[in-house]
Amino acid sequence: MSIEIKDVSKNFGTTQALSRVNLTFDNNKIYGLLGRNGAGKTTLLNIITNRIFADEGEVIVDGIPSKENDQALQKIYMMSEKNYYPTNMKIKEIFAWTKNFYQDFDMDYAKKLADLFDLNINKNVKSLSTGYTSIFKVIIALSVNTPYVLLDEPVLGLDANHRDIFYKLLIEKYSNFPCTIVISTHLIEEVSTVIEDVIIIRNGTIIKNQSREELLSQGYTISGKASSVDSFIVDKNVIGTETIGGLKSAFILGSINKETIPTDLEVTKLDLQKLFVQLTNA
């Protein structure tokens, strides 16, 4: 049971949006699809859900090619950043239609969540603020009970409180009814503890695809006086540095030998956000 993306390429005019992407989303895992704006995250998700077509390659959902196949497409729910629902439709009508298309949609749970978020389901889409437009889509994503849920920038416009509720609900849902969740975002810090596997996409190419712990254990951060750091990192695989005043931090890939570290330098773990920034710079 998985979504397999095989050799998928996509061009928009002369811009290459995706270039030979190979990727598998396995059963019941939470993935972070991380990339800067325009890296190709949404394009990839749109191809998976048959909203746009790949120029080359194919997407296989549980063994079935997803292109124009209802059976495959019904296993996936995608929450988009943009709105796909009729703007003059009431939220409760949208819930009812969702139930028509996705039979496992849990109407009671959706209404419960609407209460929790203070969403008035008698309002129509057009009258909702940006935050609440995200919220009603998030509610559907949490209630739809498909084996695969794709979330494209799910917390857009949500305040800190609502974000916290969302992540907690997501984990609760996932614990009680395991499914495969893909969270596509450029807000790394918020999702870093939630995701199990990290996929980093840059200019349409997958540059990292491994478990979060594994990725972070592949390197370390060393910081201290700039001159000491500089002399320490000469023979190391440095992916980036940060300097504040006379202090310098260097992000290093490779294993660490505690004995060789000068006492005036401090070693810490790599941090996903920083690693991401370094890997996707330039």
Partner: peptide, 16 residues
Amino acid sequence: KTTFLMMLQNGTSRKS
């Protein structure tokens, strides 16, 4: 247009 987007959102093929 509105229907098309709604169908895309709800996992429905162009054929259906």
